[in-house]
Amino acid sequence: MPRVVRRERLVPNIHLLEVEAPEIARKCLPGQFVIVMPDAHGERIPLTIADWDRERGTVTSVFMAVGTTTRKLALLKAGDTVPIFAGPLGRPSEIGSVGTVLCAGGCFGIAAIHPLARAFKAAGNRVVILVDVKADYLLYWRDKLEAIADEFVVSSRDGLYGGTDFVPRHVRDILAREKVDRIVAVGCTYLMSSIAEATRPSGVRTMVCLNPIMVDGTGMCGACRVTVDGQTKFACVDGPDFDGHLVDWAELYARRKSYFDDEVRSLCAWEEERFP
């Protein structure tokens, strides 16, 4: 079984998981994900690949501890094993030399945006990185991202980074200030949909990395179906990247919340069992 090399809390509730997975490390590309199951009773969930080391044969993901699965993952220690760490799944993001690229990430997406920004930079683009945090102490990987970015912008709601506005305002400001040729957004559904709405008037191509509920992650079940430009797509094999201006966001919100009550029940049952 795949062995955990490192698991650490980056900021409250956000954790890094580095796993020994030489085959995945050899193959993975920006925008792809892995399917992870924390234990034999667990659920299969997709996690975006945030980094990899092809020589050491490790793959890194960053996730937020919210439900049972992610809380189980957050308790892993180096040397533990996970029964499932499968991938790399999904189509890699389209990376090209387009000019100026705005890479926006929030929450776990601050890490997930990292390989995209790195690839766009390597392809010769000017890269602006915009990260969204609820408060200053929730910012992580600043050094890693600043090393890549031509410009690094933090959107925070507590004012420490010079503003109390939400991320769409920053996006609009950047678009008003300079010509942007591509926007990529990774994070919660709210972050991605609000960025897509902010860029819709300008028509700048805005790619979003969707994270619907998945089971197998290989196209077998269709749990992850999303409507894009009126067509049903499977995020796991047709995506996860789609044109944010064509996504049916209302449907995605509803499908993301499919099991809200069950998720709470599952978490309560697990907490009772583990912390009686």
């Binding site: 659920e43 699965t69 089971v215 269709g222 749990a223 069950d262 599952s266």
Partner: peptide, 25 residues
């Protein structure tokens, strides 16, 4: 609305019939 593949996979492979002992609903 499920595909049969998803419905049966949740119940059989992921053992949703034994939720919340198993995590998949």
């Amino acid at each position: 609305v499920y595909s049969a593949n998803e419905y049966l996979t949740r119940v059989n492979l992921m053992r949703a019939y034994d939720f919340p002992r198993y995590d998949t609903p």
